[in-house]
């Protein structure tokens, strides 16, 4: 197969720098992270949320930030529009989110539909005080719902035929994020 043209969005270790920058932004807004929880959307949002939790621990050693894993499969609105049902992942939220400040983490924001599902899934566990969205990659100009991230690793302008491929170390990748042309 011919190699597709791909653009590395985080070359040469920039991913770590970006995550550190995002964590500093969070620390600015959340102070000592009182009443704050971090929830990663399965699968890659969970990996990112874990890393963010560790970095925040370095910046604010007193921070006690419970980590949740959220699977949105059963909350999607496109079951009957897919060729095959998606394989669900586990949801693990072992704490109350009632009246908590939630930082929701996902890898790529595109149409906003996954985040809509995630909000729905999360509300089944209680009523958070606030929810903010953190994404590694924001693909602008293709939102189908009024959903905007509060914290963005990198914003890219993409066209529909392009795809963002996130390959983190946790899933056997090399901490690379590519923009790929599907032609």
């Amino acid at each position: 197969m011919e190699q597709q043209p791909r653009l590395d969005l985080f070359p040469a270790g920039k991913l770590t720098l970006t995550l550190q920058r995002l964590c500093h932004e969070l620390a600015e807004n959340y102070g000592d992270f009182q009443d704050t929880v971090i929830i990663g959307a399965q699968p890659r949002g969970v990996f990112l949320a874990r890393r963010i939790g560790l970095i925040i621990k370095e910046i604010v050693p007193t921070a006690d930030l419970p980590l949740g894993e959220l699977d949105v499969t059963f909350y999607r609105d496109d079951l009957r529009r897919h060729a095959a049902p998606l394989q669900p992942n586990q949801t693990r939220i072992n704490f109350q989110i009632e009246d908590k400040r939630v930082i929701l983490v996902d890898d790529v924001l595109y149409t906003g539909r996954s985040v809509r599902s995630a909000l729905d899934a999360m509300l089944a566990f209680g009523r958070p005080r606030s929810v903010e969205l953190l994404v590694l990659v924001d693909r602008r100009h293709k939102r189908e719902l009024p959903i905007e991230p509060g914290y963005v690793g990198i914003a890219v302008d993409t066209i529909e035929t392009q795809r963002v491929l996130v390959e983190l170390k946790e899933s056997g990748g090399n901490d690379e994020v590519f923009l790929i042309d599907r032609t």
């Binding site: 059963f74 909350y75 079951l79 566990f125």
Partner: peptide, 17 residues
């Protein structure tokens, strides 16, 4: 996964809406 869901306080998901 569904067994997990039906043991939550809110036992309902919108999959087949």
């Amino acid at each position: 996964n569904f067994k997990d869901i039906i043991n939550r306080p809110i036992k309902k998901v919108p999959s087949l809406r």
